Amino acid sequence: MSDDRHDRRARRSGQDRHLPCQGPYGDEGDPGDCADPVRFEVARHRRPPLRVCPVHLGPSLLLASGVLWPPGIVLVR
């Protein structure tokens, strides 16, 4: 199953709430040191969305690579 389909299925089932924050930079292969649950997805150009907690939402908008402007932010419940 492709990662995109898996991500959509996880989002529908509410599993995103239990994923750790990727903020503030969202480097691939570099797990963030924040263990807070994901609350937001930030859209990025030619990259997967960055999933972050409320504390890292602002820094990710300013520091993460590929973030669209104006930013596309989705609340994850």
Rank of each mutant, 00 (worst) to 15 (best):
Q15P: 00
P31Q: 10
R9K: 02
G32M: 11
L68T: 12
S13I: 02
L75I: 08
R47I: 08
D3C: 01
P31W: 10
S60H: 15
P48D: 09
R44H: 11
G32C: 14
D33V: 12
R39I: 06
A35L: 12
Y25Q: 08
G26I: 04
G23K: 04
R11G: 00
D33S: 15
R5S: 04
R11D: 00
L50K: 09
R51L: 03
R47G: 06
Y25R: 12
V42C: 09
H6A: 02
G29I: 11
D16H: 01
V52P: 06
P31E: 15
P49F: 00
Y25N: 08
R51H: 08
A35V: 11
G32K: 09
G66C: 03
M1C: 01
P54F: 14
L63V: 13
D30L: 11
Q22N: 09
R51A: 05
L61W: 14
C34A: 15
F40V: 03
D4T: 07
V55D: 10
G23Q: 07
D27M: 06
Y25F: 15
P71T: 12
P71R: 14
D30G: 08
G29W: 14
R77F: 00
V74Y: 05
S13V: 05
A43F: 06
R46I: 06
W69T: 13
D4Q: 10
L63H: 15
M1R: 02
R17L: 07
A64V: 06
V55R: 13
V42H: 13
F40W: 14
G29L: 07
P37M: 07
R51I: 03
R8A: 06
M1V: 06
R44Y: 02
P20A: 14
G14T: 05
G58V: 08
H6I: 01
H45L: 11
L75K: 08
A43K: 13
S65G: 08
A35K: 13
L68P: 05
L62I: 10
D27H: 09
W69N: 10
H45A: 06
D30C: 10
D4S: 04
V74N: 06
L68V: 13
V52Y: 09
D27Y: 10
A64H: 06
R12P: 00
H45C: 04
R12H: 04
P59V: 09
Y25L: 10
I73G: 06
Y25D: 04
R11P: 00
D4K: 04
P37Q: 12
P24D: 12
V52C: 08
F40I: 03
R44L: 11
P31G: 11
G66L: 01
M1T: 05
R46S: 05
D16E: 01
D16Y: 01
F40D: 01
H18E: 03
L19M: 10
P54I: 13
G32S: 15
H6L: 03
L19I: 02
E41K: 00
I73R: 06
A64I: 03
D33E: 14
A64N: 03
L61D: 05
G29T: 14
V55K: 09
A10G: 01
G14S: 07
D30N: 11
V67A: 07
V42T: 13
P49N: 14
R77M: 01
R46N: 13
P37E: 08
D33W: 04
P54L: 11
V76A: 05
L57Y: 15
P70S: 08
L19T: 05
E28C: 07
L57H: 13
R9S: 03
R9A: 04
A10S: 07
A10H: 05
D36Q: 14
